[in-house]
Design a binder for these strands. Structure first.
Lengths: 242, 242
DNA sequence: CGAGCGATTGATCGCCATCAAAGTGGGTGG
DNA sequence: CCACCCACTTTGATGGCGATCAATCGCTCG
């Protein structure tokens, strides 16, 4: 969710080290480490792969590991007893998964697309964090970022109209792929209408209608269901805030 | 917002030290420090008082300080351009105010009741945090806690009905004053109906109606507008989740 | 080509917002 | 001490946005 903090310089790393090829290392938690510390972390970590739709962990399960996402998109969701579902956030490559002090997961995490993660046992990760202030600092920065994002979502859900929610959502996705604010921007929308609806506190039909309205207003354009062009980012940004 | 982490032992502290009398020290960020470090922090800090309704800082202002709340209740809010307001959270005595990596405040903070805070210049606080891993760790724990709370609010706003929102809100307040889960529990509700409405993503009339409904259902009881008894916590808890 | 699932579009409903008016209580000044 | 005021709250009547119900479309895969 958070457009993650990046480091300025590439720490030394022997070329054959598997993490050296990791495309998201510098974006994620691992960027805070180098050399021996990274080797420590790596040795405790395993790469896990999940098919689209698979569950990484369920709400209520014990928190015994943390993760770094290296590929794919995940969703963080919660079910009410009667089946209503709310998605609290999406997790993209480079995002860290494991900001909590609780013993149980408060949310379920599932793969939206095929996904790949690095899994680190929690006890080992906690120890490492205690030994490396810069890692702890990075964790704090990530937590602060996630908190800001969650509060933005609170504003969206509490006070925005359906149209504003959908536009805000597209702009948020756009910010992730942002290469200079281009006039027209192509953005990937890996999640289904259902996921979007459950993220925005709407029903699938409403999301669909809002997409259609944006298309006929000439504000967006779609080639297929998972690719959207933002045609007028400036106007969209205004509309997103009411 | 977060029922804050507490330490087990009271660190040594010379009796005449002003912080030694601080009722919330052990609950807040300062509990991570003792002796010289606490003196450092204290020397950089000033006590500030605000009347009910006063603004501590506005959204968009530079973040040049962090705060610990020692008395009173604050609200964290954001205005949309057309005047719609969303309250992202309430801040109670002991709560830390300043979890961010941004240069500008994302939210406005105002005093709901007369309030008292300890104000610490940011540069000094950041330096102190860098020098004291246990302080950084405490900050991380607080951030993780706030994140969990914010995501709970996301679920509330995205998927709960008006009745469920009001009940969840009362239970959240109840958890703050929780002395054993008593059969009937008295809770303080320092904020106005308007604040409650803007927190729950509802209008004031709806909040009022839901309070009335809970009263006639025998689930709560009110002596005055700012005191509520939870008569059947168990049933309320069930109703809060749908 | 047909089955099946997700997405779209249309018709109607219901919850909560909005509009309106009356009630309540705390504070101030006479 | 009381009368008045004003802001907040409560209650009632109506309306609208988004949910729900329903039908069709369109794509993917067998």
């Amino acid at each position: 969710m958070a457009p993650v903090v990046s480091t300025d310089t590439e720490p030394n790393l022997e070329p054959e080290h598997p993490c050296s090829e990791c495309g998201v290392r510098l974006l994620s938690i691992c960027g805070a480490l180098a050399g021996d510390e990274l080797r420590d972390l790596r040795q405790s970590g395993t790469t896990i792969r999940h098919k689209a739709g698979a569950t990484i962990f369920f709400e209520g399960e014990p928190v015994d590991a943390v993760f770094t996402t290296t590929a794919g998109t995940l969703r963080l969701s919660k079910l009410l007893p009667d089946g209503r579902r709310q998605i609290a956030g999406f997790i993209f490559p480079g995002d860290f998964l494991g900001i909590t002090m609780e013993d149980e997961h408060a949310f379920t995490v599932e793969a939206i697309t095929d996904a790949e993660l690095c899994r680190f046992p929690r006890y080992h990760f906690d120890t490492l964090a205690e030994q490396h202030p810069q890692l702890e600092r990075r964790l704090y920065a990530l937590a602060a970022h996630e908190l800001a994002a969650a509060r933005q979502q609170v504003v969206l859900l509490g006070r925005k109209t359906a149209a504003e929610r959908v536009i805000s959502f597209l702009l948020m996705l756009g910010r992730r792929c942002a290469q200079e604010d281009r006039m027209a921007q192509e953005i990937a929308v890996p999640m289904s209408r259902n996921d979007i609806a459950d993220y925005l506190g709407l029903r699938i039909e409403t999301v669909s209608r809002e997409f259609s309205a944006l298309k006929s207003a000439g504000l967006i354009q779609q080639t297929n269901k998972h690719t959207v062009w933002l045609l007028q980012p400036g106007r969209l940004a205004k509309l997103a805030e009411g």
